[in-house]
């Protein structure tokens, strides 16, 4: 039990024994300062306050600031990813609703078109028979065929006949789909594209978050060390943090 106390009271190169409680961030909260024993205090020579160097002062501020910024950035990235996730979900849902609506429209359109096809076939058969009978002079029979033709005509839409009088089912299908398109959303592709964009954003934000997290060990290293490792850790942590921020910014909008 004596070893920790001895270590705690060992003077730092700068002569300060209060660094651990002075810094913020993870390290500061890991281990609360333990009370020094009177014996140990007595065993130490009296401390002579020394003036901290400007370089040491800057790191004292920079490292906690970076750690704080890291936490803030991580929180913002998580928030933005959450917003993107909501947007992706909504876009995906809208896409599926549009896909379902398109399927319904296609089915209804095909049913109507099939009805027209059959009516047109019956109409045209009767009409052709009437024409042939009339051309041979069988006018009463031709008239009967024409009257029969009219019983089918009410289901045939003349706008879908071509110049030769032939029914064009594709034209009716397209028209029915277009009419539905003006009434309800039946285009899922644009929604799915929007969902894809948001999902890509989430992936980029996740990547930025992981990069940001990589700065944490370096900043922790800087926090617990002194001398060159402290400077190196700070530089590396700051650099990685910057890369993470750039990645997050790129993914943001």
């Amino acid at each position: 039990m004596s070893q920790p106390n001895e270590e705690l009271v060992a003077p730092s190169p700068s002569g300060s024994t209060t660094d651990a409680s002075a810094v913020g961030g993870a390290v500061a909260t890991l281990e609360p300062p333990e009370p020094t024993t009177p014996a140990a205090t007595e065993a130490s020579p009296p401390e002579v306050p020394s003036r901290p160097s400007p370089k040491r002062d800057r790191l004292e501020i920079l490292i906690p600031a970076l750690l704080a910024a890291l936490g803030l950035a991580a929180a913002l990235i998580a928030w933005r990813a959450s917003v993107a996730s909501n947007a992706a979900g909504e876009a995906s849902g809208a896409g599926l609703a549009a896909a379902r609506q398109r399927a319904i429209s296609s089915i209804i359109g095909e049913g109507i078109t099939a009805r027209t096809i059959e009516a047109y076939l019956d109409y045209e058969r009767a009409r052709r028979q009437a024409e042939m009978l009339a051309s041979e002079g069988f006018d009463p029979e031709a008239q009967l065929a024409r009257m029969e033709a009219t019983s089918h005509w009410f289901l045939v839409r003349p706008e879908y006949l071509d110049r030769a009088g032939a029914f064009q089912p594709d034209r009716q299908r397209a028209a029915l789909l277009a009419a539905d398109e003006a009434r309800v959303d039946i285009n899922p592709d644009s929604h799915f594209e929007a969902a894809e964009i948001e999902q890509a954003r989430i992936r980029a934000l996740l990547m930025a978050g992981i990069v940001l997290a990589l700065a944490l060990p370096f900043l922790t290293l800087a926090e617990i060390t002194r001398g060159r490792p402290r400077v190196g850790g700070t530089v590396a942590g700051a650099a990685i943090f910057s890369v993470g921020i750039v990645l997050a910014a790129a993914a943001w909008v």
């Binding site: 920790p4 270590e7 660094d19 993870a26 281990e31 060990p217 617990i224 002194r226």
Partner: peptide, 20 residues
């Protein structure tokens, strides 16, 4: 190189960072 020369504490801090 450890500021407080408490290696256990320093190791804990690094382990926490790496686990994070």
């Amino acid at each position: 190189h450890v500021r407080e020369e408490d290696l256990g504490k320093a190791a804990s801090a690094m382990a926490l960072a790496l686990l994070t």
